[in-house]
């Protein structure tokens, strides 16, 4: 039994996280968030890797203690290989390799993006493939046709800014601070989404997105009105902006699923935590008779549970990686065809 235990490690950005899985089932996971951000929510890369160095050992120790387990019970290690910050990835990878060598257990390098997609199915032994995935975060906005595990086709993507980035930048334009996504979501609860119609970009015969023009549109709107008016209607403007993003994301996703004759849609990434997007996708899913999967809120942000779960899948699908696997900061999903 013990050899089925998977240790997952995630250090790609500013979360230091570890998880324990028994086969496909979560035993326990811990995420430590670093507090070394700049005023606009950036991660200071050098500090981030130093913090990972300091936190990773204790985080792994804690997850084992809280699960009443010890290192000798670990049967394999899954670790984020990319994408992410080079220095941060290296901390997790070096730790994982050292441990794998010491324990003489296999190691699996995990694509962080794939982890986010699979986070929807943690605990499950089967995947409901094929499905369409709407992957939305600060760095990504993509529609992916997931034919089966590790067989992907890119259907559409942003041509400029990611959806999560638009939330952060508009939050800054509105002067409401960081992190933009959760703050705009919260503020919008008291606002009228139909207060102003901001621009929606689309491209003919394409499932691509663009959010750069929307950002300019919000800026122009703010410049055109006096600060008192903006302040009074902050919630309305936030809600109207959010509505524009949700409209575009949900309409493109539904259209793509219908055109590809897929009856399942899966949300993934940090923006999948947005309450309006979840609500709209639920409504549209019912209307169009599509089965909708939304990740548990605790798995929308970076975590090691999704990495360990992905480790389970990699062990099912392929041979372990070698101990010389490298950090790949710009790792992409491998798209077939």
């Amino acid at each position: 039994m013990t050899k089925a235990i998977i240790l997952g490690i995630e250090t790609s950005c500013d979360e230091t996280a570890a998880a324990l899985f028994h086969s496909h089932e979560l035993i326990h996971h811990i995420t430590a968030t670093q507090l070394v951000h700049t005023s606009y929510g950036g991660v200071v890369p050098e500090y981030a890797s130093r913090e990972h160095n300091k936190l990773l050992g204790p985080v792994v120790k804690s997850v084992l203690e809280q699960a009443d387990m010890d290192l000798s019970m670990i049967g394999s290690i899954a670790v984020t290989q990319g994408p992410g910050l080079a220095g941060s990835l290296l901390v997790g990878l070096s730790y994982a390799k050292g441990l794998a060598m010491g324990l003489n257990v296999p190691i699996y390098g995990i694509n962080h993006i794939e982890g986010h997609i699979f986070a929807n199915f943690i605990g499950q032994e089967q995947l409901p493939t094929p499905f369409l995935c709407l992957l939305v975060s600060g760095g990504h906005t993509q529609l992916i046709h997931v034919q089966q595990a590790q067989v992907y086709k890119l259907i559409g993507q942003t041509r400029d800014d990611a959806a999560g980035e638009a939330f952060d930048k508009v939050a800054r334009l509105l002067g409401i601070g960081y992190p933009g996504g959760p703050l705009i979501d919260q503020l919008s609860q008291d606002g009228d989404p139909k207060f102003h119609r901001f621009s929606r970009s689309s491209f003919p015969r394409s499932y691509d997105f663009s959010f750069s023009g929307l950002k300019t549109n919000v800026l122009q709107y703010i410049q055109k009105h006096d600060p008192g008016f903006i302040k009074t209607h902050l919630a309305d403007i936030a809600a109207s902006f959010q509505e524009a993003v949700v409209d575009v994301l949900s309409n493109q996703a539904i259209q793509a699923a219908k055109d590809l004759k897929l009856d399942r849609i899966v949300l993934a990434g940090g923006v999948a935590a947005n309450s309006r997007l979840r609500q709209r996708m639920t409504e549209l899913g019912q209307l169009h008779e599509l089965e909708l999967f939304q990740p548990d809120l605790r798995y929308c942000t970076d975590n090691a549970a999704m990495i360990a779960y992905m480790g389970y899948w990699k062990a099912v699908l392929q041979q372990p990686d070698l101990l010389d696997i490298a950090a790949i900061p710009n790792l992409k999903l491998s798209f077939g065809q």
């Binding site: 890369p45 760095g139 800014d161 930048k169 750069s212």
Partner: peptide, 13 residues
């Protein structure tokens, strides 16, 4: 490829 904003990734090649 599309030239995407590097705000979250810092560096695009």
């Amino acid at each position: 490829e599309y030239t995407l904003s590097p705000t979250f990734t810092y560096i695009n090649e």
